[in-house]
């Protein structure tokens, strides 16, 4: 399908951009730093001490997989929120660039359907996010597994969840770019969606602390529509730490994010289909 070709072209475009080169270098440097500087003393399956560049981080003796949980949890949150924040900045101009004069006319003259262009852009950006987060999470679990003998593949699953969350944010950014061809507006829209999605995860607690009135109704209304990105991030962190995760709730959040993304994309295609270039 042409969608895949559009996505592949976007990936080719991204590799030429310094943002992503920088991200790749940064992740690699971080991982190499851990390889060289992190010392984990494991005795009979228990982590006895953790040293980073010679400084003792923790010296309590605990089961190694339990002791590494905070690391996996922190990494998961970094991938989730940090990845979303990075992504909304670094990917904000893919869609505006697609729609730029000279480029969009040429693309629309080709035998590619309009929805395939948007779909391919979305897929390409998501693939980019997946590659980055899997690289970071995978590198971390390989390093920690080699050093401790604890092989925990859950961070990879957490990375996938983080990408689902980013996909939700990017779908809104794509819609914004179709409405207003501006990377800045697209990034701002993504930031707003990230903030709103984080609040939406704590909807129940926030509503409980609000007094009845128009403000509460307004919050209840829009937070009921927003995807619960913070819930997804929390679930990803729990998964990364091999802690139990409510399958029903996780499934619901994933479905909600997926449906929201699909709705935003459908709206973007609706506008794109009727747009003159």
């Amino acid at each position: 399908m042409k969608t895949l070709h559009v996505a592949a072209d976007l990936l080719r475009e991204a590799t030429a951009r310094k943002w992503f080169l920088g991200l790749g270098v940064a992740i690699t440097a971080l991982l190499l730093g851990l390889v060289g500087g992190l010392r984990l003393d494991v005795v009979d399956g228990a982590l006895a001490a953790t040293r980073l560049f010679g400084s003792v981080l923790q010296a309590s003796v605990r089961p190694a997989d339990v002791a590494l949980r905070p690391v996996f949890i922190a990494a998961s949150y970094l991938i989730s929120y940090g990845g979303m924040a990075f992504g909304l900045l670094a990917c904000s101009d893919f869609a505006p660039a697609l729609l730029s004069p000279g480029r969009i006319e040429h693309l629309l003259s080709l035998p590619v359907r309009r929805w395939e262009l948007l779909g391919g852009t979305f897929l390409g950006v998501l693939t980019l996010g997946l590659i980055g987060s899997l690289y970071g999470a995978g590198g971390l679990l390989v390093i920690l597994g080699a050093k401790t003998g604890v092989w925990n593949w859950h961070p990879l699953l957490a990375a996938v969840l983080a990408v689902v969350g980013f996909g939700t944010v990017y779908s809104g950014m794509l819609l914004s770019a179709v409405l207003v061809r501006s990377a800045a507006v697209s990034a701002a829209c993504g930031a707003l969606l990230l903030f709103a999605g984080t609040l939406a995860g704590y909807r129940t607690a926030i509503l409980a602390s609000m007094r009845e009135g128009p403000g509460r109704w307004a919050f209840a209304a829009w937070s009921g529509l927003m995807p619960s990105l913070s819930t997804l991030a929390d679930a990803a962190a729990n998964l990364a730490a091999a802690r139990p995760v409510g399958v029903g709730q996780l499934g619901g959040v994933l479905a909600g994010c997926g449906l929201f993304s699909a709705a935003a994309l459908a709206l973007a295609v609706w506008h794109f289909e009727g747009k003159d270039f």
């Binding site: 009921g224 529509l225 995807p227 029903g248 909600g256 449906l259 929201f260 459908a266 709206l267």
Partner: peptide, 20 residues
């Protein structure tokens, strides 16, 4: 496409409500 967007948005809200 517009109808699909509206239906999907409603579904997303319903799923969120059902699983919250």
């Amino acid at each position: 496409w517009l109808l699909a967007a509206l239906v999907l948005l409603v579904l997303a809200a319903l799923v969120k409500r059902a699983c919250s």
